[in-house]
């Protein structure tokens, strides 16, 4: 499974170190670095591209919303806000919130949830990378139960090309049977379960 990288941005040293040691208890994650000011934060995000950013909103001063879009969204990060102030949940918009008073298991629960979402996304993206988009398209048609001839007609290519693609797909995935390929296609969201006959 791909490891999930986390960046902690919080100005208090004790909190930074403490949170980092709590999060280490989750397997499968990697704390990239913890940062204590905004300039450093921007720099590290751009360089290391973390999957999750855990930040204290007081680091952003007043330009939180300005920052969020180009920064968090553009880097496809999940954002977790941490604060001693309970009211941040009403003031800000984020994927999750941690409070200073939360106990260890609560914190782990929150982070784990986000990590799982990320892992799931990575898994889907990654396995799709192994097939070219043409192959994915062909696989989709195979999974829908079309014959080689039907696929060739629909995509305006020769049967021979379809056969070659099929061979490559089978070789890449290690799956031979049509029903096996169908399961793969559903697992990877190439088709919907209801579309299958």
């Amino acid at each position: 499974m791909p490891r999930i990288s986390i960046l902690i941005a919080e100005s208090t040293c004790l909190i930074r170190k403490g949170l980092s040691s709590v999060i280490q208890k989750l397997g499968n994650v990697e704390i990239l670095q913890s940062v204590s000011n905004k300039a450093e934060l921007c720099d590290i995000v751009n360089r290391l591209k973390p999957d999750i950013l855990i930040a204290n909103p007081n680091m952003f001063d007043s330009d939180y919303e300005d920052l969020k879009k180009p920064f968090v969204a553009a880097n496809k990060m999940s954002l977790v806000l941490i604060s001693e102030d309970k009211s941040i949940e009403d003031t800000y918009n984020a994927d999750a919130f941690i409070h200073y008073k939360d106990n260890q298991s609560k914190i782990l629960e929150i982070i784990e949830e986000i990590v799982n979402q990320k892992t799931e996304k990575k898994r889907i993206n990654k396995s799709n990378e192994t097939l070219s988009s043409r192959e994915q398209n062909i696989l989709k048609h195979i999974a829908l139960g079309l014959t080689n001839k039907e696929i060739a007609d629909q995509l305006f290519i020769s049967i021979h090309t379809v056969v070659t693609h099929r061979k490559n797909i089978t070789q890449k995935l290690g799956i031979k049977s049509v029903s096996g390929l169908t399961v793969y296609a559903i697992l990877n969201n190439l088709i919907n379960m209801d579309e299958v006959k």
């Binding site: 799931e120 995935l173 290690g174 799956i175 031979k176 049977s177 096996g180 793969y184």
Partner: peptide
């Protein structure tokens, strides 16, 4: 046996 092999591959490689 082809299907059986596919199932095991799917369970090992593609399902969390």
């Amino acid at each position: 046996e082809e299907k059986l092999m596919d199932l095991r591959t799917i369970m090992i490689k593609y399902v969390a």
